[in-house]
Design a protein around this nucleic acid. Structure first.
Lengths: 340, 340
DNA sequence: GTTTGATTTGTAAGCGCTTACATAAGCACT
DNA sequence: AGTGCTTATGTAAGCGCTTACAAATCAAAC
């Protein structure tokens, strides 16, 4: 099959401009190492031939891909969207491309994705959460791929974290709930298996309970996969129980929104009949009615910081350092006093 | 800098297994072209060395990347999320990886992203909408990259479309609005520049108006960038006008949700005081209160179909064919009769 | 025990680029 | 004009893989 006009290569440009391939390459990658007159000529040739460098060849020769990989647990809801968006903005500004894939909250899948991204030459990796099989961290080290962990903060890992304290954030919210007078408290958490963030949030609630002289064991806890519908189902289940709680703390805004919807469907007023809280403070939280009282997470800040850190690690080949971001309780309308 | 253990290459595996690199390569890519005994030996070596093939090298040698690129106008809100998710699921099932980037609704940026994705060796491309500079289509043809156009349906383009009729979908909704008795109708559209879908939706409303003996010129139209906040602002602006409309048709659910929020803030009841409709039927639409009457778009179906079509084009090097998907009016609670 | 054809494996030539090194050119001084 | 710089460009060796082609092996048929 003869191509009418084959895709131009560096060589074609070099010939057209009457220089060597090295010079063309330099024009593109280090323009100041080439004198103005030749540069002009070369760029004109590039333009004329509509030349685009072959990425694979470049990666191969330079052993750098200017690509950063990120593996997030899910793309189905927007939990990670805002942070990732900021991450990618910062990356773009620094000349890197972001490759995203999702692990569906499965450690095994994440492992596979890590391999794929590294095979694709990712210069660095962004992972969510800290907890994973040691073999994963071994592999990362062997492959010599800088990695930062986001959405979590842990001082025990050797990889830098750019995140926040899930435990403390949730404990603060739970304290607030208790301060409102609630004693019958239930919690809807996303599945804690393979999810250290969810687990820490549950523990955060328990800590607050204990701190206030309540029995952490009394916490009615339901675990369910992430989702609005699953949140709604869990809420229905909780309400059906004999010792009906006056406040339902949700492990994430997504679950809380489901709970909210279910409450409306059951004719329960929020917060008059039952209080509901979330975690994350995603856009959704201020749109629903009533607007959700939740834990604000500095998503954009986290994304930017993670990108900055990661690029630094890649470019300076030095160990990264962790950043702890602050969360706060974002008060809106879904938390009130318990019905008297 | 000496690496304690360098990343293993095909060569290392070959040596370890006592075969040639060609055999190892075949074991990985065409296992049945290698006899069982050697294959076992090779795979054991792969395992032992924890070998992962270098993607760039493979792409370069094979001139295939098993990568599909998609450029969507925005990632900021979830409009494209569901469809893209389905697209990527199907791709994954067929052994392809998806590379996504966003053009921020700017034709120039999209052009750049197309080049980038092609440079990265994308075997095929998914683009949103049909309208773009002819030079883009020229480039695509010259680079010989199969491309499908989604979220639109147009028979005039040479590229296959997998999408729906924006004009007809919106016209149907507008007819519904008129049938409810509305005569004072306003529309909030996202910016129509560089956005044929938005433009077609506006035209859809105008058609319905004309069809029902109303003057299409009377349509109070506000264009604004996509966003909940911008939707809210636009709504405030519309309501402030002397000839206050009884129904506000929004070009997308995102804008409608903003309008809904603004209405609540202004103390207007929906749909008693004013009706509001959307387009897309994203998850959001059934969560907000009141639930949004909107145009349902078969996102997942579209994503799957587009992936199937694109992969076929790539693998059979044949021209693709278009698929027209049906939309329908999803009635919920935000559309009612005008206040009497 | 040959011969023949099919099957399995090896050899080696790239794919398009970057970059260390070598060479040439330019420039300011003597 | 010659010296010793600095700076600009060219030469060519890979990067790690796939694959056309050649060589070797094997089995079945004579």
């Amino acid at each position: 099959m003869t191509q009418d006009r084959a895709i131009p290569t560096l060589d074609d440009v070099a010939k057209a401009a009457g220089v060597s391939t090295a010079t063309v390459s330099r024009c593109l990658n280090a323009p100041d190492r080439v004198v103005e007159s030749t540069r002009k000529r070369v760029l004109a040739a590039v333009e004329a031939l509509d030349y685009t460098p072959n990425f694979a060849a470049r990666v191969m020769a330079a052993k750098r891909s200017f690509t950063i990989g990120a593996i997030i647990p899910t793309m189905e809801n927007a939990i990670f969207a805002l942070g990732l968006q900021a991450f990618q903005e910062e990356l773009h500004a620094r000349g890197y491309t972001l490759l995203v894939s999702s692990s569906a909250y499965q450690a095994e899948l994440e492992k596979e994705q890590i391999r794929t991204l590294i095979a694709r030459g990712a210069d660095g990796l962004l992972l969510i959460g800290q907890e994973r099989d040691p073999s994963v961290y071994d592999y990362l080290k062997r492959q010599n791929v800088p990695t930062v962990l986001a959405w979590t903060y842990d001082t025990e890992t050797e990889h830098p974290c750019v995140g926040f304290d899930n435990h403390a954030g949730m404990a603060r919210l739970a304290n607030e709930v208790i301060a409102h007078g609630h004693r019958q408290i239930a919690m809807i958490s996303s599945t804690t298996h393979d999810n250290d963030r969810a687990r820490e949030r549950v523990e955060g609630v328990r800590s607050a309970l204990a701190e206030n002289g309540l029995n952490p064991e009394d916490l009615a806890l339901i675990e369910t996969p992430y989702g609005i519908d699953t949140g709604a189902d869990a809420f229905a289940q909780i309400i059906a129980q004999p010792s009906r709680p006056t406040a339902v703390i949700c492990g994430s805004d997504v679950l809380a929104v489901g709970a909210l919807r279910q409450a409306r469907e059951m004719g329960l007023r929020v917060p008059e009949d039952v209080s509901i809280t979330g975690f994350d403070d995603m856009e959704l939280a201020s749109i629903v009615f009533p607007a959700l009282t939740t834990v604000h997470v500095p998503h954009r800040q986290m994304g930017h910081a993670a990108a900055t850190e990661l690029v630094t690690m890649v470019e300076q080949t030095r160990a990264g350092q962790s950043t702890l971001l602050e969360t706060y309780v974002q008060k809106r309308d879904s938390l009130g006093a318990p019905p008297s």
